[in-house]
Write a protein that binds this DNA or RNA. Structure first.
Lengths: 236, 236
DNA sequence: GTCTATACCAGGATAGAC
DNA sequence: GTCTATCCTGGTATAGAC
């Protein structure tokens, strides 16, 4: 197990997971479950990064539906024709973007908590990991929240499953804490649900927190205070 | 002041405020700050109700941008031509819908807490009022959250102002509670911010709560528990 | 692999009959 | 007041040159 510094801030997290858009796009390119017509990895990855960055930027302004492919081509610096070498329809582009981030999120969160036993430490780590991840990948998180409803039925099921999966991580931790006598007997379902809501607020209302100059670490700390007092713990 | 039953559930609230889509549309019709070309109140109100109901239904499915006016005309049972007697562009329709609800929300919340002095009772009432209102007007709340970003700059300022206004209601109550020594010295800004997030979760993730069979009153009660324990109060 | 040019269609908007 | 018919922009998607 990697030895962990006591102070687990955004920088420490970043150094640990080291996720870049490039890595994510390379993964997508290697997957072969898509309709990318480009052969050379270097070219494909470079352009995928440009496309996704541009798509997230434009979509998060006025919504994916309002983003035209003409606009995307201008923003990404590629022609319309070139775009269609990377996806076969706007719909497919949407699915690619959403799938891209989902796998990363699930893997990173799971990896972050796997070697921690103590319920409170586990909860704290899960919350920090989620916040930091959403800080690093904010455009994707925002996009994912807003555009999931535009997916077809099958893809929507995946999205809902992911939402419930991360929520269940928190629920499991809380139940573990309760049965070990460390936490009070609270409603684990509702508790995990509001945790999720508070975590989501961080990336959905970034303008608000930025205006008030609240840092991630501060927000994380605040959430732990609230949860500690509710679940019957004191900060050690 | 209206005497208030100890148990302030959804039904009690509903009886008290008694808001209907028809009333809201009548208010809009009488406002004359819009481009409704219809003269007869009866006709106008009846059709505005049909239009807004249909628009909320369709928009909340796939987003306002994805809703076509042809689709709206079919859903509302009016022709394209008739629609344009009630608004002059799709953009204006969006603004009408958002303005429609905003005034109601601000008025109702303010009225609900105006005669209550005790900070905790005030907080409790504000939370209940917000939850019940979002329960009654769920389609509007969901729409408002999702579509605000599609407004032009000027209208967006109004929307942000409303968000901050309701958040400040909570902030003021908490600060009042702190200075009167009733609450612990918590961070009122962050506290009000998470209250807002938890309230919003109720109408944004309705499918989740319905699936788990959580009633509004139960959720309200849970939120008060969390806040009481954080701010240093016991349920009396 | 990428571009330009173009096909084709759906959407918003309006005119004018009833 | 409401409807039908029509206009026309701007969107997605593709063909074929380079």
């Amino acid at each position: 197990m990697i030895s962990m510094p006591e102070e687990f801030g955004l920088a420490a997290f970043q150094a640990l997971v080291n996720i870049s858009m490039e890595d994510m796009c390379r993964g997508l390119f290697l997957d072969k479950n898509n309709s990318i017509k480009i052969k050379k990895e270097g070219v494909a990855v470079k352009n995928l990064v440009k496309i996704f960055d541009a798509a997230l930027r434009l979509s998060n302004e006025k919504g994916f539906a309002a983003m035209s492919l003409r606009g995307l081509s201008a923003e990404a610096g590629l022609s319309m024709g070139a775009l269609y070498a990377y996806f076969s329809s706007k719909e497919e582009l949407l699915e690619m973007i959403l799938r891209l981030g989902r796998s990363v999120v699930l893997q990173v969160i799971a990896a972050q908590i796997q070697d921690i036993d103590d319920p409170r430490a586990r909860l704290k780590r899960a919350i920090h990991a989620h916040l930091y991840l959403s800080e690093i990948m904010q455009p994707w998180f925002y996009f994912s929240y807003m555009e999931t409803k535009n997916l077809d039925k099958a893809e929507q099921k995946n999205a809902i499953a992911t939402e419930l999966f991360t929520e269940n991580i928190f629920k499991d931790i809380i139940e573990q804490g309760i049965s070990s006598g460390m936490f009070r007997q609270v409603n684990a379902g509702l508790a995990s649900s509001i945790i999720k809501a508070m975590l989501q607020d961080w990336y959905l209302k970034r303008w608000k927190f930025r205006r008030r100059e609240i840092a991630v670490e501060e927000y994380a700390c605040f959430l732990m205070e609230v949860l500690d007092s509710y679940m019957g713990l004191r900060d050690q």
